[in-house]
């Protein structure tokens, strides 16, 4: 039972990171039906910015938690700027183009950002400081759940609740929902659709940056390529939950993380990915629109 609990928490931690990134995929898809393949790179850039900032702050003698918060804030601002610019440069000019064009543009941006960081930083792994301190009160259960994992779980829970509230109760949230339902109609009622799309990209990038900082500090190492695998997994999670559906992305992330942890724990970690993608195939066969996705109505 202890073992199951350990695996469950390990899966939950991993899953909530997937979920944070998956939300960015699913929100963008929900509004402009684009799979933003460069999203994983935003996550990677978030981690890199936090690394640089924490390096500088350490020199100035800040302590662990304050570094974590400041580094996360600056990473969020940077990533948001990247997300906003990405949309403006690579996707907005292609708004009316066939669906394949922005998709190729997204892949191009992903490669561009990867190689940009590769050249500007290094190809090697870089050590990431452990920003979350070891909490004393966690010691008796440290073998099951460490303080870094606790912070990951709490932060992602708060972030997801905040996102839900934002979409449900604010003006911009309402505008986002309207744009998602029908972009032309939303425009007719006076919603600035371009601005809504920009905001969507910014929110997605903020979530990815938070995930990047959390993972960097949890794992202790980053390199320019971490965005790729995380992006693939998060995209899988978004599809699993029903792409375009926000609670679905969160659920998909958790299911994927748990599936991986259980597969690694009870079968073999060599087959972790096989199992994770096996779950995806199975769910898509049984529920083609994902766990929470609604069957797409054909627009005539």
């Amino acid at each position: 039972m202890d073992y199951f609990l350990e695996l469950f928490l390990s899966g939950l931690t991993r899953g909530s990171i997937y979920a944070l990134i998956a939300l960015g995929y699913t929100m963008v898809y929900g509004i402009i039906q684009l799979i933003n393949f460069a999203h994983g790179e935003i996550y990677m850039i978030g981690a890199f910015v936090a690394l640089v900032v924490s390096g500088v702050l350490t020199i100035y003698g800040f302590s662990g938690v304050s570094i974590l918060i400041l580094a996360a804030l600056i990473a969020i601002i940077y990533s948001a700027a990247y997300g906003y610019t990405l949309e403006k440069i690579a996707y907005r000019p292609l708004r009316g183009a066939p669906r394949l064009s922005p998709l190729i543009s997204a892949i191009g941006m992903s490669l561009f950002l990867q190689n940009y960081v590769l050249l500007a930083q290094t190809a090697d792994f870089l050590p990431f400081p452990e920003l979350v301190p070891e909490f004393e009160f966690m010691e008796p259960i440290a073998h099951i759940m460490g303080s870094a994992e606790l912070i990951i779980l709490i932060t992602s829970a708060i972030t997801m609740i905040g996102l839900t509230l934002l979409i449900k109760y604010t003006r911009i949230g309402k505008a986002m929902r309207a744009t998602q339902q029908d972009m032309v109609m939303a425009r007719l009622t006076g919603i600035n659709v371009d601005r809504v799309i920009s905001v969507t990209f910014i929110i997605g990038s903020v979530l990815a940056a938070i995930a990047g900082v959390l993972v960097g500090s949890y794992i202790g190492q980053i390199n320019y390529f971490i965005g790729f695998m995380a992006g693939v997994k998060a995209f899988t999670a978004a599809v699993l939950g029903g792409i375009g559906n926000i609670p679905g992305a969160a659920l998909g992330g958790l299911v994927l993380g748990l599936a991986e942890a259980m597969a690694a724990g009870y079968i073999s970690s060599a087959y972790e990915d096989v199992f994770a993608f096996g779950v995806l195939v199975l769910i898509l066969i049984l529920r083609p629109s994902g766990l929470l996705g609604k069957a797409v109505k054909q627009k005539v």
């Binding site: 695996l7 390990s10 991993r14 990171i17 390529f225 997994k233 690694a264 970690s269 990915d273």
Partner: peptide, 20 residues
């Protein structure tokens, strides 16, 4: 005797297995 996936997000599951 087990393989791990390079680049995976974390290895906590396999670490728990070592303990078990």
């Amino acid at each position: 005797f087990e393989g791990v996936t390079p680049g995976a997000m974390d290895y906590s599951a396999v670490v728990q297995k070592i303990r078990r």
